[in-house]
C-alpha cells in the first residue's frame, strides 16, 4: 500500500512537471509552493498559467477518474463474483454514451432546446444523467418484490447495453462527418477538458464512492461467498447490493461525463491487484483507487507528450500500457497455477 501511495505521488509530480511546454523544475516548484502559501518569487505568468490552470486540474482529474473507474470496477467484480464484470455491465457507460452521442449528433437539431439551456455543459450533464438513468432502469428490471438477483441484474444489463448500443449506432449512422469525428474522439476518452469547475463537479460526484466503497470491503468479502452465505453472515444483502450499484454508477457516470469513455482501467486494475495481492477487498478497493489513478495519469502523461503539439486519445494508452503488463502477470499466474 505504501508502494502504491508513493507511486501515485511520483506519477502526479511527473504529470505536473512534464508537458509540451518546457518549464524548468524550479518554476514548477515555485508555482506549487505559491499555491501552498510560500513566497512564490519570480515566475513567468504563462508558466504559472500552464501549471495552475492546465496541468494541476488535469492531474487531479486524472487521479479522480482513474481511482473512480478502478474502485467501481473492483466493486462490480466483487458484487457479480465474476472476473469479467466491469462497471459497463450495469449499463452506466452505455447509457452515458447514448446520451453523449445524442447531444453530439442532435445538439443542433432535435435537442437544440436542451443544448441552448445547458450550454457548454450539455454533454457532461447528459452523459452523467444518461448513465444513472440507465443503471436505475437495469436495476428496476432486475428487481421484483423487493428482491434483486445478481444473475438477472447481469442479464438485464446485457439487454440494456445492447439497446443503448443500437441507439448509439443509429445516431452514429445519422451523424455527419464532423460529428462522427467528435464522437469517435469522445469514445476514446480524454482528460483535455480538465478545467477547475469540471474537476470540482467531478470531485463532488466521485469523492463519495471513492470514500464509501472501501468501507464496504467486509460486505464485498462476504458476498464473494454467495448471496445466501452473506445473508447468513448477517449482511443486509439487498440493501448492500443497491448501495454498491448506486455508488459504482455515480463514480463511473461522473468519470465518463468529464472524460469520455476510458476503457480498461475499471476492468484490469482490480485484476492486477488481485493477482498480486489476493482477493481481500480491504486491500483491493483502496489499492485499486491508487493504482487506477496512477495508471490513468501515466497514460495521460504519454497522451499529452507523445505527439506534441497534438494529443492522443487516452483510451489507446491505458490499454497499451496496461495490456502487456496484465498479460505478463497472467502468464506467470498460469505457470504457478498449473
Amino acid at each position: 500500500m505504501l508502494a502504491l501511495v508513493s507511486l501515485v505521488l511520483i506519477v502526479a509530480l511527473l504529470s505536473i512537471a512534464i508537458g509540451p511546454v518546457t518549464i524548468p523544475p524550479a518554476d514548477v516548484l515555485r508555482a506549487l509552493g505559491g499555491l501552498a502559501g510560500l513566497p512564490a518569487g519570480e515566475i513567468a505568468p504563462q508558466h504559472e498559467a500552464v501549471i495552475l490552470s492546465i496541468r494541476l486540474p488535469r492531474t487531479v482529474l486524472g487521479l479522480l477518474v482513474g481511482a473512480g473507474l478502478a474502485v467501481a470496477g473492483a466493486a462490480m467484480q466483487g458484487l457479480f463474483r465474476n472476473p469479467l464484470a466491469d462497471p459497463s455491465l450495469i449499463g452506466v457507460s452505455a447509457g452515458a454514451a447514448l446520451a453523449a452521442v445524442s447531444v453530439i449528433v442532435l445538439g443542433a437539431s432535435g435537442l437544440a432546446g436542451v443544448t441552448a439551456f445547458l450550454g457548454p455543459f450539455s454533454l457532461p450533464i447528459a452523459a452523467f444523467a444518461g448513465g444513472l438513468v440507465t443503471t436505475l432502469l437495469v436495476y428496476r428490471l432486475a428487481s421484483s418484490e423487493g428482491r434483486t438477483s445478481v444473475t438477472t441484474l447481469l442479464l438485464a444489463g446485457i439487454a440494456i447495453n445492447a439497446l443503448c448500443g443500437a441507439g448509439t449506432g443509429l445516431l452514429t449512422y445519422l451523424a455527419d462527418d464532423q460529428q462522427l469525428r467528435t464522437l469517435t474522439f469522445w469514445s476514446m476518452g480524454s482528460l483535455g477538458g480538465a478545467t477547475w469547475p469540471a474537476v470540482g463537479s467531478a470531485a463532488l460526484m466521485i469523492a463519495l464512492p471513492l470514500l464509501a466503497l472501501p468501507l464496504l470491503a467486509r460486505t464485498l468479502n462476504a458476498l464473494l461467498l454467495g448471496e445466501a452465505e452473506a445473508g447468513h453472515l448477517g449482511i443486509a444483502v439487498q440493501q448492500m447490493q443497491r448501495i454498491i450499484v448506486a455508488l459504482a454508477a455515480l463514480a463511473v457516470g461522473a468519470a465518463v461525463a468529464v472524460s469520455g469513455i476510458i476503457g480498461f482501467v475499471g476492468l484490469v486494475v482490480p485484476h492486477l491487484l488481485r493477482l498480486a495481492l489476493g482477493p481481500d477487498h480491504g486491500f483491493l478497493l483502496p489499492g485499486s483507487a491508487l493504482l487506477g489513478g496512477a495508471l490513468l495519469l501515466l497514460a495521460d502523461l504519454l497522451a499529452r507528450t507523445l505527439v506534441t503539439p497534438a494529443e492522443l486519445p487516452i483510451g489507446i494508452l491505458t490499454a497499451l500500457l496496461g495490456g502487456p503488463f496484465f498479460l505478463a502477470l497472467l502468464l506467470r499466474w498460469r505457470r504457478t497455477a498449473l
Binding site: 480524454s190 483535455g192 503539439p309 497534438a310
Partner: peptide, 14 residues
C-alpha cells in the same frame, strides 16, 4: 496541432 475538434491546450501553448 492535431484535429481541430480535439485540440490540446498545452500542446498549443508549447
Amino acid at each position: 496541432v492535431g484535429y481541430k475538434r480535439a485540440l490540446s491546450a498545452e500542446g498549443l501553448l508549447s
